[in-house]
Design a protein around this nucleic acid. Structure first.
Lengths: 231, 231
DNA sequence: CGCATCTTTGAGGAGTCTCAAGAGAGGTGG
DNA sequence: CCACCTCTCTTGAGACTCCTCAAAGATGCG
């Protein structure tokens, strides 16, 4: 394990509890950790670009990374935002070592890189590695399908409501929390222009949602859930 | 291998060349084939429903299957259409044995079912099985990401153009072929109302595409590719 | 405290959906 | 072989959602 940075305890925890490492046996974890490099990034740094050779895939130890596609005109479509403990870029391992999208740092980050080729070599010896990666892929796939379904079936305020409900503790009748990142980023992941997100929030005020800067208070989660499904 | 139906040679070929079985070693293939059941379906038959327990995942031997999500109002959003040789429902194996969408037969089909629990048991013994499934998941994920990006960056005519170009032999300056299924199904997979697809086709006539029923002729693939990326 | 960045609001327009009606294709039976 | 029926597809008109551009108002950082 080669680290060019000292990790704090939260970063260590993110690493060991991520969906890639946490299900592994000790032997498999040791083996993949030997292919690992840790690197720090500044906001706006490019982690990788679509179509380039995939040498590594990443686990986020801290910070935020945005995955997106770019148009020929330079317009961008967000595929997801990843935060501490998330794994991304792993699918390149099964796509001819080619990244299927761009990844850019959205907030100063520390990333653990695993060597794609070396981990691939380990698959036959440690069956639990492929299983862990399958689990990650399945969750990413389900998230992408959720995104497609929401884009096609829900209006902007309904999508925002779904997003907010996903970060309420399940079962609680009301909830208060802070948005995990700035609103323009959130707008992107929901497939909206920033102005549309702003207007969606205004409309949610009528449904018992208070917005003060990044702080959100939801009066009645059950009523909001109702709204998020049909108006 | 338990078959309740006789398979023709095309169905046999679809089975053996599918992304699940074709990369496997003989021993692994034999093992998973022992968990297999083959069943015939009529159009509109439900293969499985979102949220139900996933006993099996499927390989299509012939026919068409539509994967979609349903709204509380009954509105549907298509996640994909699968045809002979395609595998679907495999992600349930890593999602607590729970299907993430509905699957319905769109055209009279014969499906090979693999037992989810039994195949899962085989993963430690045959590492290539998890690897094959990872490959399928990665391709499904990339397709879903393509879908999100196209929905957000392209207009209806551009999405239709992309779809048509994807079924032209690569490198050919012009091309003629038949749509793989009826237009209302195609509209669904592109996230369009049937009327919008019809209007998109009208507009593509101005870009050198002839439409006669299901038969398509593309005059200049390169020009159409240009159009599909930016207007 | 001042500046840069992010967010909100307004107005206008592009794109797609819905509903409704007409045209076409494909299959069935006389 | 043709008339008929059904199903699919096309066309039109109007409404709605969301985007774009522009400017004003917050927010946060040095």
């Amino acid at each position: 394990m080669k680290t060019t940075l000292d990790l704090d305890s939260a970063q260590h925890q993110a690493l060991l509890q991520c969906a890639f490492l946490s299900p592994l046996s000790d032997a498999a974890r040791d083996a993949v950790m030997r292919t690992m490099t840790v690197r720090g990034y500044q906001t706006q740094d490019i982690v990788f670009r679509e179509g380039t050779t995939a040498d590594t895939f990443c686990c986020i130890l801290s910070g935020l990374v945005r995955l997106y596609r770019v148009n020929i005109d330079g317009r961008e479509a967000d595929l997801g935002i990843f935060s501490a403990g998330d794994v991304f870029g792993e699918c390149s391992m099964f796509l001819q070592n080619c990244y299927p999208a761009d990844a850019k740092v959205a907030e100063k980050a520390v990333l653990a890189h695993f060597d794609t080729a070396m981990v691939f070599e380990l698959l036959p010896k440690f069956p639990d590695i492929a299983q862990a990666i399958s689990g990650i892929l399945a969750h990413h796939l389900k998230a992408a399908q959720n995104c497609i379904a929401d884009d096609r079936l829900k209006t902007a305020p309904q999508r925002v409501a779904s997003f907010l409900l996903a970060r309420c503790p399940p079962g609680s009748p009301s909830s208060t929390f802070r948005l995990p990142y700035q609103k323009s980023l959130l707008a992107g992941t929901l497939g909206l222009a920033p102005e549309a997100l702003s207007r969606a929030f205004s409309q949610l005020r009528l449904n018992g949602v208070s917005i003060m800067g990044r702080n959100i208070a939801i009066e009645d989660t059950e009523a909001l859930r109702q709204f998020s499904r049909s108006e």
